[in-house]
Amino acid sequence: MSQPTTQPETPLPETEVKPPFRRWISASGPLNPFIPPLFITFILLAGNFSFGILESYTRTLLAIGTSITAEMVLGRIFFHKWLHPASSYITGISVGILLRSPAFWPYALCSLISITSKYALRFRGRHLWNPSNFGICAMLFLASQSVASLSIQWGNNFASLIVIWMLGSVILWRARRVHITLVYVASFIALSFLRAHITGDPWQSEIAPITGPMYQLFIFFMITDPRTTVRSRAGQCIVAVAVALLEFFLRLDSSIYAPLYALFWVGPFALLIEMWIHSRRNGITGLEEIPGRKAVSA
């Protein structure tokens, strides 16, 4: 008989001594769908209590309520089930934060357009645009007399951004998407210096946008949206660079909402390419949806 193998003085395997947070970070399963909504809610509340970023609570609640209601109704019609509200909640809250208008109707309309775009603009069974990106771009194109997008709110200090970055990075790390954000940020900064060289403007002015609050939602929620990003890690990085590159050219053309517009064009295009590549590899005729995506989107 051998001696019992249990030896109290023997250290436990590393995985077992991890504290809960580290266990959560290193886990490989799907991200709890409530985490991103909680995070974006935190951004909203912190921003509003510290700086009053919202036009009003009622407008934001209108955006959220409209978004969830639209998702519920359309999901019931098309999928015959009540969909998890996490995705539509994030869409609504993104609209509530990113859109600025003294009127109420743009918030409801933007949310409706965002959610409806998921059902109206589908290709091979899937939607191509990030919903809130589509909705806000549509409003900026079509209702410029009534709306603008957040670009100058939430103060201009680092403290709030650091908090967002810390929490956002942790969540993205857990969702295995932090590389998208990092590649985009690195590309943006590199291209900022190139833009400064071309335009002759101070490099600080070219870097300035990414130090502002609008970009944090863009960086953490829009370009990382699992539903509307390509599957492969390399592909995601290429898309992030492509978004930054198109933004670079749009900025040279003085486009104020360059990042939103860049994602608007690059995101669907990248998905179509991926579907095409996937169909060729698998010998499928035409473009096909990539299986296996499950997460929340803005």
């Binding site: 201009n156 403007d201 600080q204 002015s205 870097i207 300035a208 130090t211």
Partner: peptide, 26 residues
């Protein structure tokens, strides 16, 4: 020709950028 683009990109930036006139495009 409008200055709005340059205005918004700096106005949204960090305080160390917006607060210094030297950082504003001409």
């Amino acid at each position: 020709r409008s200055y709005w683009y340059d205005f918004t990109k700096v106005a949204g930036g960090n305080s160390s950028i917006i607060g210094d006139a030297a950082n504003w495009p001409a």
